[in-house]
Amino acid sequence: MYDIKALYEATTVDEAVSLRQEHPEAVIIAGGSDVLIKIREGKLAGRELISIYGIDSIRGVSMEHDGTLRIGSLTSFSHIVSSPLIREHIAVLGEAAGMVGGPQIRAIGTIGGNTCNGVTSADTASTLLAWDAVIELAGAEGVRHVPIESFYLGAGRADIHSDEIQTGILIRREAYEGFSGHYIKYGMRNAMEIATAGCSVNVKLSPDGNNIERLRIAFGVAAPVPIRAHKTESQWTGKPADDETAEGIACSVLDDVKPRDSWRASRDMRLHLCSEMAKRAFLEAVRRNKERRV
C-alpha cells in the first residue's frame, strides 16, 4: 500500500542531521499525516524516509528563561490545544490548532510539519506568522534562526537546508506580551476541512485601551504562502480601536492580499472574505484585549 524505499529512524537531533547528510534525497517524516498521503497518491512513492518522530527532545511546549515560548516541532495539534502555556500566552494558536482536520489528525499531526510543508492553508501558519514566530533549525553547522515570514519561500517550499531539520518554533516575549488575537478559518464545513481562506489578527492596545499600539494581521490562502498585511498594519497603528477603524481595515487589506481564482473559490469571493474576516478578527481581538485588562 505504501511504496517506501527505506526508513531511517532518528532518536536525537544529531542523528537526524547525520542521516540528512548521508541520505540527501530522503524525505523527512514526522507524524506522517501529509507525507504518507502523498506516498499513497504516488507523489512521493519509492522514496527514502527519515523519521524524526522519535526525537522526544523536540516535543512539547516550554518557557525559556528570557520568556521566549518554545514549541518543539514535534508537538501535536492536540497537545497545543491543551497546553496551559499556550492558553495563557497565545490562546489563539490553540484555537487555530483545534480547527485542524479531525481528532485523529490533530493527535498525529505536528506543528513542525504544518509549517515545513509550506502550505498556505495550514491552520497554524497564519497565526504563527501573525505572532512573529521564529523558526529554529539544526544542521551540521549548528543552529539557525529564521523569522517565519522569510522561512516560506514559495508554495510548498520552505527554507530548510539539506542537512537541517526544524527543531522548534519560538515566540519571543515582546511578540506575545500584552497581545490578544483571533483566528477565523473559512471552510465549507466545520470539521475535516482545509481552509478556503483564513485570517489571524492580534492587537496590543494603548494603556488606556483606546488606541492600537501594535496591530498584526496575517492571511492564509490569500497568496501562495501565508502573508502579512504590512501596509494595513502600519496604516492603522496608533488609530482608535473602534468600528470605524475596523471598516478601514476591511478596505485596506484588499491592497495587501493577492488571492487567486481556483475551482475551490473565485478571486472576488476570496477578496470579499478576506475583507470581512479581517474586520471581524480585528474586532474580536480588540474585545479580547480589552477584556484581558479588566
Binding site: 478556503t196 478601514g248 476591511a250 484588499l254 472576488d268 469571493m269 475583507s275
Partner: peptide, 25 residues
C-alpha cells in the same frame, strides 16, 4: 446552497457589495 452560490446571489440582490464597494468606504 454553498457559500459560492450565496456570494453570487447576495451580490446580485445588493445584500453584500464585494470588494469594489468596500474600497470606496
Amino acid at each position: 446552497i454553498r457559500p459560492h452560490l450565496m456570494y453570487e446571489e447576495f451580490m446580485k440582490a445588493g445584500l453584500i457589495h464585494g470588494r469594489e464597494a468596500a474600497k470606496n468606504v
